[in-house]
Simulated scan of single mutants.
Amino acid sequence: MSTGTRPTTTLWRPTGPVELELVRESGWCAWPPRLPEQPIFYPVLDEEYAVRIARDWNVKHDGAGFVTRFEVDTEFLRRYPVQQAGGRTILELWVPAEELDEFNAHIVGGIEVVHEFR
């Protein structure tokens, strides 16, 4: 996808209600800092994979699961090699927690909720 003159890449993030509330508080434009036990922020490259995590994991652990979609500057994302975390479509980017502010600065547009599970 291209937004203006900067090419962007669509990413998805399965999330629970606590993280989603922090995203809302940011004005739908940034992911919150990682917790100490979360050294990596991992958005995913496949919507179906994000749906599976939100529906099957977040609902069980948090009572609700959400899938968000957002665009990130493609050139910036090149620093993060795609990680295959299982099957062919289980693809993630692994963003070190200490780089999350810079990652957030490269989000183009807002973060939107595209699926909700309870």
Rank of each mutant, 00 (worst) to 15 (best):
M1E: 13
L77W: 08
R13P: 03
A54R: 08
F41C: 06
T68P: 04
A50M: 05
A54Q: 10
R13I: 01
T10W: 09
L22P: 02
T74C: 11
L22S: 04
M1F: 13
F70I: 06
V18D: 00
W31Y: 12
P14G: 11
E71L: 10
G16W: 02
I107L: 08
T8A: 12
F41Q: 06
W57S: 08
E37W: 09
R34T: 00
D62G: 03
Y49V: 07
N104R: 03
R88D: 15
V95E: 10
A85L: 10
A97I: 05
E71S: 07
L100H: 01
V113G: 03
V72Y: 05
F103M: 09
D56Q: 12
Q84H: 13
D56A: 05
V108N: 09
I40W: 10
L91W: 10
G86I: 07
G27I: 00
I90N: 14
S2T: 15
A54P: 11
E116I: 02
W12P: 00
V108H: 11
N58E: 08
I90P: 03
S2E: 15
R55E: 14
S26G: 04
E48C: 10
G110C: 08
E92A: 08
P81T: 06
P7W: 10
E102G: 08
R24L: 09
R6P: 11
D56C: 07
A97R: 02
L77K: 09
R24N: 10
A105R: 14
W94D: 09
V67A: 00
V44I: 11
H106Q: 14
I40A: 10
T89C: 11
T3V: 15
V51Y: 01
T8C: 15
W12G: 00
D62W: 04
A64M: 04
G110A: 07
E75A: 15
H106N: 14
T89N: 14
R78T: 14
T68D: 04
V51W: 07
L100E: 05
P7F: 11
E21L: 07
W94F: 11
E47F: 04
I111M: 08
R24K: 13
V67Y: 03
E25D: 09
T8E: 12
R78D: 11
T8K: 11
P17T: 00
V18Y: 02
S26D: 06
A97N: 03
E19T: 06
Q38T: 01
N104D: 02
S2D: 14
T68K: 04
G109D: 08
N104S: 07
V59K: 05
R13S: 13
R13Q: 14
E92F: 06
E19S: 07
Q83M: 13
P43G: 10
R24G: 08
I40P: 03
